[in-house]
Simulated assay, not measured.
Amino acid sequence: MSNWKTAFRSFYYENAKDPDDIILDPARTALLVIDIQNTYLETPDDKAEADRWQPFFDRMNHIVIPNNARLIEWARAEGIEVMFARIACQTEDGRDRSLSQKKPGFNYLLLPKERKDSQIVDALAPKGDEIVVTKTTDSALTGTNLRLTLQNIGIRNVIVSGIFTDQCISSTVRSLADESFEVLVVHDACAAATDELHERELEIINMIYCHVVGLDDLQGFVVPVLH
């Protein structure tokens, strides 16, 4: 297993000193699971397109969803706030969507909030009063009241997982960093369309907008603090 302090370094940080040890106070930490929704597990009707996306489906089914299930259960057991973000519009015709979700191609997203394909996958379903924000933007911070919610709860550290690493994960992480939250991205609980895109984006955001860590690293970061 690679050392999180030295892995995923871009050109900018090749020679930077190692970051300090991470200390997470559960009372000031939230887990944010982003966009793991039914729509992204639907196999395209076109065989060539289905074959093109098969590596992504394999990563989701065998790595990302199981690891997020572990991550969520770990957070619940530690007393860390578990939160979710999903893409969903308020209107049936999607007129409330941001421009990026109205453009043709992969990013064209019409996911009315009550429709089955817009829901979080059953394996990761929220429990009790866990907070779910809906967004029509890439950033879960820009397009929702998440910033205010995090502040109201007293959160300073945000652990991020989900999809897509190079799109909604990256956008959210950058927004959180600009608001001075401490951000961790769990690399083996995220995915992009390809592993190459996934790893490249991790290099881009690591050490400036977040620290990229593995699921197994997290347990060693939690230190309860008396308030």
Score class of each variant (00 low, 15 high):
residue 6 T to V: 08
residue 9 R to N: 10
residue 10 S to Y: 01
residue 12 Y to H: 04
residue 13 Y to S: 10
residue 13 Y to V: 13
residue 20 D to W: 02
residue 22 I to A: 07
residue 23 I to S: 08
residue 26 P to Q: 02
residue 27 A to V: 06
residue 27 A to R: 15
residue 27 A to T: 12
residue 31 L to E: 14
residue 33 V to C: 13
residue 33 V to T: 11
residue 34 I to S: 04
residue 38 N to C: 10
residue 38 N to T: 08
residue 39 T to E: 08
residue 41 L to H: 02
residue 44 P to C: 06
residue 45 D to N: 13
residue 48 A to D: 06
residue 54 Q to I: 14
residue 55 P to I: 00
residue 55 P to C: 06
residue 56 F to W: 02
residue 57 F to H: 08
residue 59 R to N: 09
residue 61 N to E: 10
residue 61 N to G: 13
residue 63 I to R: 14
residue 65 I to W: 06
residue 67 N to H: 13
residue 71 L to A: 03
residue 72 I to N: 01
residue 74 W to Q: 03
residue 76 R to E: 12
residue 79 G to L: 08
residue 80 I to W: 08
residue 81 E to S: 14
residue 85 A to K: 03
residue 85 A to I: 01
residue 86 R to A: 03
residue 87 I to V: 09
residue 87 I to L: 05
residue 92 E to F: 09
residue 97 R to Q: 07
residue 103 K to A: 01
residue 103 K to M: 14
residue 105 G to C: 03
residue 107 N to I: 04
residue 109 L to W: 01
residue 109 L to Y: 00
residue 112 P to N: 03
residue 112 P to F: 00
residue 113 K to G: 00
residue 113 K to I: 01
residue 116 K to S: 15
residue 119 Q to D: 12
residue 121 V to T: 05
residue 124 L to S: 08
residue 125 A to N: 07
residue 127 K to G: 08
residue 129 D to P: 09
residue 131 I to P: 09
residue 131 I to T: 13
residue 135 K to T: 02
residue 135 K to I: 04
residue 136 T to K: 02
residue 138 D to H: 10
residue 140 A to N: 11
residue 141 L to S: 09
residue 143 G to K: 03
residue 143 G to V: 07
residue 144 T to V: 03
residue 149 T to Y: 12
residue 150 L to M: 14
residue 150 L to R: 03
residue 153 I to N: 01
residue 154 G to K: 04
residue 156 R to N: 15
residue 159 I to A: 11
residue 161 S to H: 06
residue 162 G to K: 07
residue 163 I to S: 00
residue 165 T to D: 02
residue 166 D to R: 06
residue 170 S to A: 15
residue 172 T to F: 02
residue 176 L to T: 07
residue 177 A to L: 00
residue 179 E to V: 05
residue 184 L to V: 09
residue 186 V to I: 14
residue 188 D to W: 09
residue 189 A to D: 12
residue 193 A to D: 12
residue 195 D to K: 15
residue 196 E to F: 15
residue 198 H to G: 10
residue 201 E to F: 13
residue 201 E to M: 15
residue 206 N to M: 12
residue 210 C to D: 15
residue 212 V to T: 14
residue 212 V to A: 11
residue 212 V to R: 06
residue 215 L to A: 01
residue 216 D to G: 11
residue 219 Q to G: 15
residue 220 G to D: 06
residue 222 V to F: 02
residue 224 P to A: 13
residue 224 P to M: 10
residue 226 L to T: 11
residue 227 H to D: 10
